[in-house]
Computed example of a mutant assay.
Amino acid sequence: MRAHSSGVTIITMNSASGPTGFTASSVASVSLEPPLISFNISNRSTCLRAMQLTDSVLIHFLSDQQRHLAERFSGRITERFSPETEWSHLASGEPLLAGTRVWLRVGVQQRIPAGDHTIILGLVRDLSVPSDGKLLPAPLIYQNGKYHGAVPLPPSDPTASSHG
C-alpha cells in the first residue's frame, strides 16, 4: 500500500487525560445516505484506549501547508497538544486544530477488529467546508513513506488517443 497515494488527516478526540489525536491516511467515504466514513487505527496506537472510549471524533483534512501538524501528530503523544499546537474546543467539545479549513465531526458507530488494526465506522454529524469562494488549499498527500503536495494536471487533449 506504500505506492498508493492518500490524503492526510488528523483525528482528534477527548480522553480522560485531555485532548489526544493521531495522523491518519486511511479515511474513506462509505455511504452518502446516511453519511458514513471509516478510518483505521493501529492496535498499538497510544490513542487506541481513547478511541475505544470516545463517542465522537473530529477529522481534520490537512493542506500541503500543514505538514508540521501531520509530523507532530505522528510523533510523541506528549508533544501533540504541546504549546506550539494552536487549538480550541468546538461547542460540542471536540478539539479543533487552528487553520484547518475542512473538517468533519463524526459520531463513532462501530469499532471493527481487523488484524493489527481497528476499523472505525462513523456517522458525519457536522462539517466545515469553506463557502467564502476562495479555492481550497492543495491537500497534503502521503505516498511511499513521504509527504507530497498535490499539483493540478493540465487539461487533457480530447483529440489524443488513450490507446496510442
Rank of each mutant, 00 (worst) to 15 (best):
Glu94Ala: 03
Thr85His: 02
Ser29Cys: 11
Asp157Tyr: 08
Leu69Gly: 00
Arg67Tyr: 04
Thr118Trp: 03
Ala91His: 10
Pro139Leu: 08
Thr46Asp: 11
His148Val: 04
Pro19Arg: 01
Gln110Leu: 14
Ser74Phe: 10
Arg67Phe: 02
Thr23Tyr: 07
Leu96Glu: 08
Val27Leu: 14
Gly75Lys: 05
Asp157Ala: 09
Ala91Tyr: 02
Asn144Gln: 11
Leu104Phe: 11
Ser156Gly: 12
Ile37Tyr: 04
Thr54Val: 13
Thr118Val: 15
Glu94Gly: 02
Phe22Asp: 04
Arg125Lys: 15
Pro139Arg: 05
Phe22His: 09
Ile37Phe: 08
Gly99Trp: 00
Tyr142Arg: 03
Trp87His: 05
Leu104Thr: 07
Phe22Pro: 01
Ser29Asp: 06
Gly164Phe: 15
Ser128Pro: 00
Arg2Trp: 12
Leu62His: 03
Ala150Phe: 15
Pro152Gly: 01
Ser45Ile: 07
Gly164Ser: 15
Glu86Lys: 12
Ser128Asp: 08
Ser128Phe: 02
Ser45Tyr: 02
Val129Glu: 07
Glu33Asn: 10
Pro130Phe: 04
Ser88Lys: 11
Asp64Arg: 04
Ala70Glu: 01
Leu36Thr: 00
Ile41Ser: 01
Met1Arg: 14
Thr46Gly: 15
Leu153Met: 14
Asn43Lys: 15
Pro34Gly: 00
Gly164Leu: 15
Asn144His: 11
Ala70Ile: 05
Ala70Ser: 12
Pro139Trp: 07
Ser25Gly: 15
Gln143Glu: 08
Gly93Met: 09
Pro155Gly: 09
Ala28Met: 14
Leu58Thr: 12
Ser92Cys: 13
Leu32Lys: 00
Asp55Phe: 09
Ala70Trp: 01
Pro35Asp: 07
Ala138His: 05
Ser88Glu: 12
Leu32Ser: 06
Val151Gly: 01
His148Cys: 04
Gln143Val: 08
Thr85Glu: 02
Gly145His: 06
Ala114Leu: 08
Asp132Cys: 02
Leu123Pro: 00
Met13Arg: 03
Arg67Ala: 13
Ala91Ile: 11
Val108Tyr: 06
Pro139His: 07
Trp103Arg: 01
Thr46His: 13
Leu123Thr: 11
Val57Ser: 05
Ile11Val: 15
Val151Phe: 05
Ser42Ile: 05
Glu33Ala: 07
Trp103Asp: 00
Pro35Met: 06
Pro19Gln: 02
Leu127Phe: 13
Gly149Ile: 06
Ser42Pro: 00
Leu48Asp: 04
Ser15Phe: 06
Arg2His: 13
Ala16Trp: 04
Leu48Glu: 03
Asn144Ala: 14
Val30Ser: 02
Gly133Thr: 05
Thr100Ile: 10
Ser162Glu: 14
Ala3Arg: 13
Ser156Met: 14
Asp126Pro: 02
Gln65Ile: 06
Phe81His: 03
Lys146Leu: 10
Asn144Ser: 14
Phe61Tyr: 11
Glu86Ser: 12
Ser92Tyr: 04
Glu84Lys: 06
Glu84Trp: 00
Pro158Lys: 07
Glu86Asp: 11
Ala114Arg: 07
Leu97Ser: 02
Ile120Glu: 03
Pro19Ile: 00
Ser128Met: 06
His89Lys: 13
Arg111Val: 09
Glu79Ser: 14
Ser156Val: 15
Ser25Lys: 01
Ala70Met: 04
Gln52Met: 12
Thr78Tyr: 11
Leu104Asp: 01
Ala3Thr: 13
Leu123Lys: 12
Thr159Met: 12
Arg49Ala: 15
His148Trp: 14
Gly75Asp: 09
Phe81Pro: 00
Pro130Val: 09
His4Arg: 12
Phe22Leu: 15
Ser88Tyr: 03
Gly107Trp: 01
